[in-house]
Design a protein around this nucleic acid. Sequence first.
DNA 1: ATGCCTTGTCGCACAAGA
Length: 265
Amino acid sequence: MSGHTLRIATWNINGVKARIDTVSAWLREASPDIACFQEIKSVDEAFPGDAFEALGYNVTTHGQKGFNGVALISKKPPEDVRRGLPGDDSDEQARYLEAVFSTGDGVVRVASIYLPNGNPVESEKFPYKLAWLDRLYGHARSLLAFEEPLVLAGDYNVIPTPADARFPENWTGDALFQPQSRGAWRRLSALGFTDASRAVAPRDELFTFWDYQAGAWQKNNGIRIDHMMLSPQAADRLVCAGTDKHVRGWEKPSDHIPVWIELAA
DNA sequence: ATGCCTTGTCGCACAAGA
């Protein structure tokens, strides 16, 4: 061990154009080595990469018009960039971006994931979510064969357990808390991934999302849906984890907050 | 609660989010 740590974060920023100042302020404060963004809501050509490059970052995007879209912001340039989740060539939604980064101690593979919301459950959106979870399972299993530090980070749109919601009874009919969604989450975990936030703080609230509506933030009506899943080789290097909850109280906040880990590097 | 906010779109309201 060199004694250094690699700081990796994930944040659903809810629109990069509306969040340039907020995101820039957070990058200055948190100084992550790698940041995974979701819901950039921008095509690649319109992504304001200059603002982040001015802070010393490389910018890699996988966007689409209006909705969805993911990005990787990194102090070191990415290698082996993969855009899109394998398993369905007809899927045109930009929800998956993966790359490899060199560190002081080998490489780390990082994915920025924006899982489908899936509501309402009686619509076609819910089976799309479950199919996407199945595809993620298959791809994650294939990546585990590399036996390297791997971080699957992002907005999973899954509330894993009742402890991950302030009012779990309010979510029983929601796609985020359906038995099928939670079952798919458990199957992914059972492949051998470590839920970094829970591993470090088993009993804390650790909410990552508070709705803009009905004073959810003021009432602490939150849920934990942004997760960082670590391969065994990444989990072996886990030093600490946390959330930047104070960012939810800033001007023009996203409805999600940054979630981060530090890996020995 | 179909509501409550917020963002993006080429809008003069709407879809989507969670």
